[in-house]
Design a protein around this nucleic acid. Structure first.
Length: 315
RNA sequence: CGCGGGGUGGAGAAGUGGCAUCUCGCGAGGCCCAUAACCUCGAGAUCCCGGGUUCGAAUCCCGGCCCCGCAA
């Protein structure tokens, strides 16, 4: 049908953006990646090792044309124009695209977003969906306009959130759904078979960029709230509590069926009859399965307790 | 030179110049209707590596290797 391949410039940085890119690459008869734009590999890490963008890694492996501009200035825009793309595809790129960039390709710029828009616009749709205890979410493909996650919808796909899904597993599901959505829908969109329809802006909700401090556990809340917080923020930015001024990462927990924790000061650690540590919350006990003290490797809850023969208390 | 914590029997920790300790696990035995409970006994350590100081170093000094948290 479509003899002419769709020329695409792909904008992406984070893990979420990897599967859709690979899906495009797997259909070389339909799509041609004429360029990949990703955030620069910034110096980071304990020893200043540069943190490499996952998308940039793929681009290098596949020998794609790769740009990593600090910002989308005039030079970058000129470069983008010269690629003569039909379409820009954006997924978890991390930088705002200036309006002028959106108008470069004839097909405009389309964005893959990790929620069912207009719900959960913004920086942390995946985490927020888990945190709010949603049972379903999804991915939405929109035609970008100058406002964030605001443009008309091209198509969307629903994804269920399982009780055990954490940020990592849900991101994987969503990014795979995004990949399918993109390869199925983009050709139809380019062929003019889809008319994007406006979002219901009145029902829009927004999510903010996560801060480390949001990973701090408040033991005075419900065990279920804490459990969702852990799933939403694992493995990044991570969940922690404090013990004697030391930071303790909480990696894995289990909610006890025992509700008597409400009689105990929140944060207090006791042991179950089979000697597993459990922490009091506002309602149920939370069993510590795996934790990681600051400066230490991850250890089981039991091992952790061995080092503290006396009673301890998280704050 | 971004900031910081750490390396001690199989696991987790204490010990900051003078006998190698604690909790758990492991082995043997005991108790009990019973046990992830309790009691007795026991094995298991080059205290990360190499130098140095000292009568004496896990501990202090110098150098090295390895692990990790924060920040970005």
């Amino acid at each position: 049908m479509n003899k002419k391949r769709i020329k695409i410039v792909y904008f992406g940085t984070a893990d979420f953006a990897v599967p859709p890119l690979q899906a495009l690459l797997n259909q070389p008869a339909i799509f041609e990646i004429v360029g990949v734009v990703s955030q620069p590999d910034r110096p980071a890490g304990r020893k200043n090792q540069p943190k490499i963008s996952p998308v940039a890694t793929i681009a290098r492996e596949k020998d794609l044309v790769l740009f990593q501009p600090e910002k989308l200035d005039k030079n970058a825009i000129q470069t983008l124009k010269e690629l003569k793309a039909d379409l820009f595809v954006v997924a978890a790129y991390g930088l705002i695209l200036p309006k002028i960039v959106l108008t470069i390709p004839p097909g405009g710029a389309i964005n893959l977003h990790g929620s069912l828009l207009p719900k959960y616009r913004g920086a942390s749709p995946i985490q927020t969906a888990i945190l709010n205890g949603e049972t379903k979410t999804g991915v939405t493909l929109i035609l970008m306009d100058e406002k964030m996650d605001h443009g008309p919808i091209i198509d969307s796909a629903q994804v269920t959130i399982d009780k055990i899904d954490d940020y990592q597993s849900l991101t994987k599901k969503l990014s795979e759904a995004a990949a399918n959505l993109l390869v199925e829908t983009a050709p139809k969109y380019i062929a003019g078979k889809i008319n994007p329809w406006p979002q219901e802006h009145a029902t829009a909700t927004y999510t903010e960029r996560l801060k480390k401090e949001y990973g701090r556990i408040n033991w005075q809340t419900s065990a279920f709230q804490i459990e969702r917080q852990i799933r939403a923020f694992s493995p990044w930015p991570g969940i922690f509590t404090k013990l004697n001024d030391r930071r303790i990462k909480i990696l894995t927990i289990e909610i006890s069926t025992d509700k008597t924790a409400s009689n105990t000061i929140p944060g207090t650690i006791t042991t179950t009859k089979n000697r597993h540590p459990q922490v009091a919350t506002a309602d149920y006990w939370i069993k510590l399965i795996e934790v990681q003290p600051e400066g230490k490797k991850p250890i089981s809850g039991r091992d952790f307790l061995h080092g503290y023969p006396n009673s301890i208390h998280f704050i």
